[in-house]
Design a protein around this nucleic acid. Structure first.
Lengths: 405, 405
DNA sequence: ACGAGTATGTTTGCGAAAGCAACATATAGC
DNA sequence: GCTATATGTTGCTTTCGCAAACATACTCGT
């Protein structure tokens, strides 16, 4: 249920080593979607015989499957492919203003099913639980015989991760909702709750633009404002309560507009999705088309109004990135949601401004990229979080009985 | 030589477990300055017999010493005290505008010797190396027979830690100086170089206000401006190059004064030590008396000019803290240098303003405290950093031959 | 002063886990 | 079909931490 905090020391007994190694192997299989045993050997630095034993143990637990070696054309005995077990899945739930969506994601990251259930009005926590349960019943056939590692719930707002508590989600109108507990009780599954942008960060870090980059900052522009997430040293940084990453609430202009949080001049208040959508003539529902629409507008020469808005947004985002980069010295900043559109049409100008605003050394090793994953990346991150306890200690993990047929 | 990055996995072999446990024990002995074997047993969760073996191994390497049990008045057989070996030391070097200081710090944190050598003009890297070598010769008697773990060099500026390279230290007039390498060659010792505020953060985290607080932000107001350091998950966060923590270069007012770094409105440009010193009638050399002087001024009622300056500084520091806290969600912010004086005279107002400016959840779990260590805490942090490789892998560590008599 | 109770140190044997070496096997290249 | 190469497989060895039994030194109560 917990995200392992960096610095939390695993019990350093001999069995602890086994658990660690099992976790490392399963993590590699999960991250790659399937690797040869030879690669596992090289990647972990462990002995051939040890890897064989570890894989056998994971296979006995149906967490991985060994498959015939693929034809590689390489010299030497072919190494069998170790693939994620297709019975193991996690469920990602995303409540939005007009719908609740649940997706079934397999170990290895394949999306097996997706059900979006529209709701008449902004869903309450109770409705979210109800709808989720109902979707799970609908998905019964797809889940029969599967091992469900848990549910990951992505909420646009402040979430106290340890307790599964939504402290404040202004756009959903939720406050102090112990939704993790409720959804857990209703489904019999273990539930992890997190901020949507933090989950986007996790997804981009593991499968997207941040692959192989250990120190990354993610900025997400969503319908409910600008959020962010941090991945430092390959681990998601949650902070004390799991609130970390709220880069939207950084001062970017003096005496600026009033922010929802009470302060003024925050990025979240100054750079608004609605404004960009209005300037482009896009409706709210066409959120996924923003990259394309903005690029088209720029190909034909943007209107003066649009150009001015983009320039202003760019400048303010540059300030926020420079501030954050000076504090964290990351290798990469990834922009997602409607912010990725800004990088697509004017990435070089953004990079230029950040280079001017950030400390020279910091700017020199900083890359700025648009998100590589599609709009469903938040679900991927939510599933990822739900898989985490399993990946940390594969054999100790107990799948809930209800989900096993 | 490297700071271990969180997420860097130690080779998980069986000998790796031993190394890890030896490190944990030595770290505990170092952090406490001496503990009973019984406490080590409870603290590590290891078996009595295991602890006995580990301590014996560390003792054989003269890293620790077992001493007669102290009279405790407790039931049961008394447990022998495990103290840091008094032969093991690190050397902290701090070049300043008008002097170079070297201190000998023993494992366990006791300061054994301190030599401050004044220089006529701001020391160049070459002079710093020369003076350090000369101080070490002077300290020869104190170092005879000791095991010197290494040198920690604290520099006010941007330091690429991995390479021991000072990228830019404006106040010393250094840029792109590979001082780590040079000082290493001149002394035959391994040298680690870091930013002074980052080292202050490390010291406060291990021995000061941040004891037992895993997530901490440190803000240091020194003669060369405002720097900072981060300790997250008990580990110092350096970022990609070791530049992380530059909270002084965060936007706190729109269209403000020009900062040395080229941007405007940064905390470092807006809150100046000189201004506070001038308002208090303090000379630059009386830096250590600032807490006292400001408190005295406030006891007698501050002048209108002073009160206005403090209020302004307070407000700007509050903005920087709120921004940083929203991004990192730490448990504690520690203010050092002249900034600690602000907390001492007006801590409650500062806390109040931060509570208004930061997100409610973030502010709720945030404490703001003045630094608990004296002005020499940067040296303590530098020694700490020099000890790090030894604490990480005690038996693999090889002391340089030159220092062993 | 002496025994009971308690916490800890010490010794010994055991089990778990990873490494290693020798052998077996499957591929590419000639 | 032979050789070189890379990998899987098997059995043995080493390291390490743990548990249990015993030894030791202290407090407390009588």
């Amino acid at each position: 249920m917990d995200i392992p905090q960096p610095g939390e020391v695993r019990r350093p007994t001999i069995e602890g080593v086994r658990r660690l190694n099992l976790g490392r192997v399963l993590r590699l299989v999960h991250a790659t979607g399937g690797v040869s045993r030879a690669v596992l050997t090289h990647e972990t630095g462990l002995n051939r015989s040890t890897i064989a034993a570890l894989v056998a143990e994971l296979e006995a637990a149906s967490l991985v499957e060994e498959q015939a070696p693929s034809v590689t054309g390489q010299v030497g005995r072919p190494s069998p492919l170790v693939a994620p077990g297709d019975r193991v899945v996690a469920i990602a739930v995303t409540p939005e203003l007009d719908a609740v969506t649940a997706e079934v994601v397999s170990l290895g990251g394949r999306r097996l099913a997706r059900v979006r259930r529209e709701v008449a009005s902004v869903p309450t926590p109770e409705e979210t639980v109800e709808v989720t349960v109902s979707i799970l019943e609908e998905l019964d056939h797809a889940l029969r015989g599967r091992l469900v590692a848990g549910i990951g719930l992505a909420v646009p707002g402040l979430v106290r991760e340890r307790e599964g508590l939504v402290v404040l989600a202004p756009h959903l109108g939720w406050s102090d909702e112990p939704i993790g507990q409720r959804l857990g009780a209703a489904t019999g599954l273990s539930v992890v709750v997190s901020n949507d942008a933090s989950l986007g960060a996790l997804a981009e870090s593991r499968f997207g633009a941040g692959r192989d980059v250990p120190n990354m900052v993610y900025l997400h522009g969503g319908p409910s404002g600008i959020g962010g997430g941090l991945v430092l040293g390959n681990a998601p940084l949650g902070g004390v309560d799991g609130f970390a990453g709220e880069i939207g609430h950084t001062l970017v202009v003096g005496s600026g507009r009033r922010c929802d949080c009470g302060a003024s001049g925050h990025l979240d208040a100054e750079v608004r999705r609605e404004e960009l959508f209005a300037a482009l003539g896009l409706s709210d529902a066409e959120g996924d088309r923003i990259d394309e629409a903005l690029r088209e507008a720029y190909e034909h020469g943007p209107s003066a109004e649009l150009a001015e808005l983009v320039d202003r947004d760019l400048e303010l985002v540059a300030v926020a990135i420079a501030n954050t980069a000076n504090v964290l010295n990351p290798r990469l900043v990834v922009l997602g949601g409607f912010l990725s559109a800004l990088v697509v049409v004017a990435g070089d100008r953004l990079r230029e401004r950040v280079a001017e605003l950030a400390l020279p050394g910091v700017a020199a090793s900083l890359a700025i990229e648009p998100a590589a994953l599609g709009p469903s990346h938040i679900a991927v991150g939510a599933a990822e979080l739900a898989f985490e306890p399993l990946l940390d200690d594969p054999l100790a993990f107990r799948f809930p009985a209800t989900a096993v047929s």
